[in-house]
Amino acid sequence: MAAPSPLTFNHLNVFPGLVHGVFSRTEGYSKGSFLGLNVGLSTGDDPDIVKRNRALMLSSAGLTQALFLNQVHGTDIAVIKSEKDAAGAVWKGQGASPSKILKADAAVTNLKGLGLVIQVADCQAVVLYDPQKEVIANIHSGWRGSVADIIGRCIDTMVTQFGCTPASIRAGISPSLGPCCAQFINYEQEIPKAMWQYKEEDRPYFDFWQISRDQLGARGVLDEHIETMGLCTRCRTDLFYSFRANKTTGRFAAVIALKT
C-alpha cells in the first residue's frame, strides 16, 4: 500500500525558496488518541509508529536528515555550525535512531539540507530565516517560553553567532493556542504583570500570537516580515493535536531547512 502524503501548509509567504511547512495530523500511521501524523516520541504512542511518521514527514518535505530536540520549555538554544555540533543527534530518514537528543527549545543553523523540527500541540513553533546570511532557526515557544522571551534570545543568538541583521529576518508563527482559547486561570502567578496588557479585559484569556509578534518587533524584526498562520489548535483538532483539548494526544511538526 502506498504511503499517505501528509498535508503541508506552505503558505508562509515570508519564506520563498526554502524547505518549510507545518504538517497537520490528517495523514500518518498513528491510531486511537494519536490518530494521524504524530511525531512525538514522548507522548505514549508506539515508538515504531512514531518513527514511521517521522520518516514519512521527512520524505514528504524532501529531506534526508533533521534535528529533533528534547524540548523542555527552557531557554537553551542549539547552535549548529558544523556537522560536529549535531553529531549523533541527527535523524536520518528511515535509518537508525540518533544516539542522543539535544536538550534545547530552539535551534539555529547555516547548514544546508538539515531540517530543524519543532514538535507542538498548542505551543507555538516560530520559524526564522535571514536570507542575507542564509541562516534559519526554529523555536518552541509555549507560555513559559513567551515569559522567558525565548524568541528574543534566539534572535540575539542569530546576531551574535552568525552576524544576522534583525531587519532582514523573516518570521512565521505556526498554528497554536489562539486568543480564543488561551485561558490562564492562575495568570497572576504564571504571567508577569507586564504581559497582562495582552489579556482580555474581562476574561483571563491571552493573545500569545500578538505577544510573539511584539517580541519579534522588539528585537528589530519588521512587522511586514512576520506572518501568523492564525489557526487555533484547540479549535481545530481535526487538523492539529491539542493538549488543551485532549490531554492524551500527539505532536505535529513545523520544519524548516535551507535547500542544498
Rank of each mutant, 00 (worst) to 15 (best):
F68G: 06
L67Y: 08
I77V: 13
M195I: 05
T260Q: 12
D156V: 02
G74I: 06
D76F: 02
K133Q: 15
A253Q: 01
T249H: 04
L102T: 15
P179A: 11
N186D: 12
D149G: 08
R234C: 13
Q94Y: 07
V50I: 15
G113P: 13
Q215Y: 00
W209L: 07
P204H: 06
V126L: 10
I169K: 02
K51F: 10
W143Q: 05
K193C: 01
S176H: 14
N38G: 03
G17R: 03
R25Y: 10
T75I: 03
R25N: 10
A2Q: 06
P131V: 01
R54K: 04
I173A: 05
V108C: 14
L63K: 04
S30F: 02
R170F: 00
V126E: 01
L258M: 09
P166G: 10
S141V: 04
E227W: 12
K199T: 09
M158C: 00
A218E: 09
A87Q: 14
K259L: 05
T165Q: 12
E227I: 10
L67R: 06
I191A: 00
Y29A: 03
K51P: 04
D105S: 07
I136C: 01
L63G: 02
K133E: 11
G32E: 04
F68Y: 14
T160K: 09
A245T: 15
C181H: 08
I136L: 04
S97Y: 13
F9W: 15
Q94T: 10
Y198H: 09
Q124C: 08
R213N: 06
N53E: 13
Y29L: 03
V50C: 08
K84Q: 13
I151M: 01
I169F: 02
G17T: 08
L18G: 09
I185Y: 11
E83I: 07
D105P: 06
W196Y: 06
G220C: 11
R236H: 15
L58Y: 02
I226D: 00
M1K: 04
F243W: 13
G21T: 03
V39G: 06
L177G: 10
T160W: 11
Q215V: 04
F240E: 00
S168G: 01
H20V: 10
V221K: 03
T109N: 11
S59Y: 06
Y205L: 15
V79Q: 06
K259S: 10
V120Q: 07
A121M: 07
P98M: 05
